[in-house]
Design a protein around this nucleic acid. Structure first.
Length: 509
RNA sequence: GGCCGGUUCGUCUAUCGGCUAGGACAUCUCCCUUUCACGGAGGAAAGACGGGUUCGAUUCCCGUACCGGCUACCA
């Protein structure tokens, strides 16, 4: 019988959550749910110098917004607590000690300053089997000296002792067999001078202790995998190592390299999941949520960045993604981020969303933008009428505010050049006709409008645009008679009168 | 520099030896629309290069080039 699938996302709470990280969350989540497994969130806060207040809460908020809730975490509980590595500090030391005892690791007493100096003077310096004999460590110092340093609490780290000329490898779920020669790998630090483990030790220990069965991480981790493989061998048995998949990177749309938050500022698109303000610098990095993305669209877009189900389908609900996801179908190569395509996904999702669900997120957004939304039914009608022309949620402000309040600006310049007494007369009569109308719906309004135009010997096309500008304020929006229907008789007539008075003063002046 | 990974239209991708190389975004043309969109029809646009293997290679192998990642007491 197979073990229950358990996967983890293990972010370091040092700032905003990049879309690459969010995609790793998504793939973890989809894989877990596809296999009826558990999704664990583990906080990797072993670097105390990089602690950023609020970052952890922010990560949870991002997951919540996307609906990708962990089964186990600091917040959700679970049988493998604590889920914060800083709270597991004491656990790691024994494993490091075990490795030293078995001759698979050693203490190193070189100070950071000494190492820095070394790197300055020796090009491409690596603390490795080539150089460790000339450094200050428990391999070069005699036993008494080491014991003395230890007894004096001289700061030191524990390094893995990479074996000579061995091939270590594994089968990546996405890339297939990957092999390394241990002679090429340096003696990575396992336990830092402050007693905290590095990522290398912590990830292996915790993946074992938390019974992780499959581990997904970015491609940038590939080069350190031989260290992790060796640790599994030494500590827990290679047969217990999770299956690994190294995810392709998300690249800059222009230039080269992986996408960074700076690219967003530079090119004008969000890179983080939600807005993030650096508590130290106050610098704000834009997020997809605040930019007006629907979480469904955001997830759909992320899933398709590097994965597809082999068909031509592009729009997927989360349920479909769970059903169809397979890690083997993840593309090997990195993908350049395409903001236009991301917006297309959002537009598609807006068009497909029901008025009721849109109304829920849109109402506060509109009120916040100063639109006086006082009638939910009217709001729903307005959303139905304009949603096809909104790509991002804030587009609804411009596209629907005129339903609730008369336009602040009227683009009178688009009417003026062709304005004349005849048209002025037509609209004066239109006010009269509309005032008498008993059936206020768009068909009737259009009919009586056209009848009046014919009677006035005026082409409907010549007065349609002016009418639109009177009601909307500009050259946009849904069909003008639909708008008039929603506005109602009184408001429609008022707006016509208002613009008419503006125009007549223009005409006379 | 060394190690590891990658390479199909401008971009995201399909293809698991038979291809007239398919789709989507963007772009262009037209239709619909007396606004802006939506929608519909169509166009242009790709297998880095060189060797093998094979009846046949985009697909398999090897080299080269190029791109990327890593090379911290950061993750």
């Amino acid at each position: 019988m197979n073990k229950k699938v358990r996967v983890r996302f293990a972010p370091s709470p040092t700032g905003g959550l990049h879309i690459g990280g969010m995609r790793t969350v998504l793939f973890n989540y989809l894989f877990a749910k596809h296999n009826n497994g558990d999704f664990i969130l583990r906080i990797e806060d072993t670097d105390q110098n990089r602690f950023v207040p609020g970052a952890e809460e922010y990560i949870f908020e991002c997951l919540k917004w996307c609906g990708l809730e962990p089964d186990e975490s600091v917040l959700h509980g679970g049988g493998y607590a604590p889920y914060r590595q800083s709270e597991r500090k004491e656990l790691y030391k024994q494993y490091a000690e075990q490795l030293v005892k078995e001759g698979k690791a050693y203490y190193a007493f070189d100070t950071p300053a000494e190492l820095e100096e070394k790197r300055k003077t020796v090009p491409n310096f690596q603390y490795s089997q080539l150089t460790r004999s000339e450094m200050k460590n428990s391999l070069t110092l005699d036993e008494d000296a080491v014991q003395k340093l230890l007894a004096e609490n001289i700061p030191h780290v524990t390094r893995i002792k990479m074996p000579h000329d061995e091939t270590v490898g594994f089968v990546d779920m996405i890339r297939g067999a990957v092999n390394f020669n241990t002679s090429q790998v340096d003696d990575k630090v396992l336990l830092k001078a402050d007693g905290m483990p590095t990522y290398h030790l912590a990830v292996v220990v915790d993946d074992y202790l938390m019974k992780i069965t499959h581990a997904f991480r970015g491609e940038e981790w590939l080069p350190s995998s031989p260290v992790h493989i060796l640790l599994w061998q030494y500590l827990f048995g290679i047969e217990n190592m999770p299956e690994w998949a190294h995810l392709p990177l998300i690249l800059k749309p222009d230039g080269k390299g992986k996408l960074s938050k700076r690219d967003g500022d530079r090119l004008g698109f969000p890179v983080f999941t939600m807005n993030w303000t650096d508590p130290k610098t106050g610098e704000l990095t834009a997020g997809f949520r605040e930019r007006g993305f629907l979480p469904e669209a955001f997830i759909n877009f992320l899933a398709l960045l590097g994965w597809n189900d082999g068909s031509e389908q592009e729009i997927f609900t989360i349920e479909e993604l769970i059903k169809k996801f397979s890690i083997e179908r993840v593309h090997k190569a990195g993908a350049k981020f395409d903001y236009e395509k991301a917006k297309w996904f959002n537009h598609e999702w807006i068009k497909r969303s029901t008025v009721n669900s849109l109304q829920l997120t849109l109402k506060p957004l509109l009120i916040n933008a100063g639109v006086e939304v006082n009638d939910d039914e009217k709001l729903k009608t307005a959303i139905e009428l304009v949603k096809d022309r909104c790509t991002l949620l804030p587009d609804f402000v411009q596209q629907s505010s005129f339903f609730f309040q008369s336009p602040k600006e009227i683009d009178i310049n688009s009417i003026k050049p062709k304005w004349n007494e005849h048209k002025q007369q037509f609209f004066a009569e239109l006010i009269h006709v509309y005032g008498l109308s008993t059936l206020w719906n768009h068909e009737e309004l259009e009919n009586s409008f056209k009848e009046l135009a014919a009677a006035s010997q005026i082409k409907p096309g010549d007065v349609l645009l002016p009418l639109r500008i009177m009601l909307v304020g500009g050259k946009f929006g849904p069909h003008v008679f639909n708008i008039a229907e929603v506005l109602g008789k009184k408001e429609t007539i008022n707006r016509i009168k208002h613009t008419l008075s503006l125009l007549s003063s223009e005409l006379n002046g």
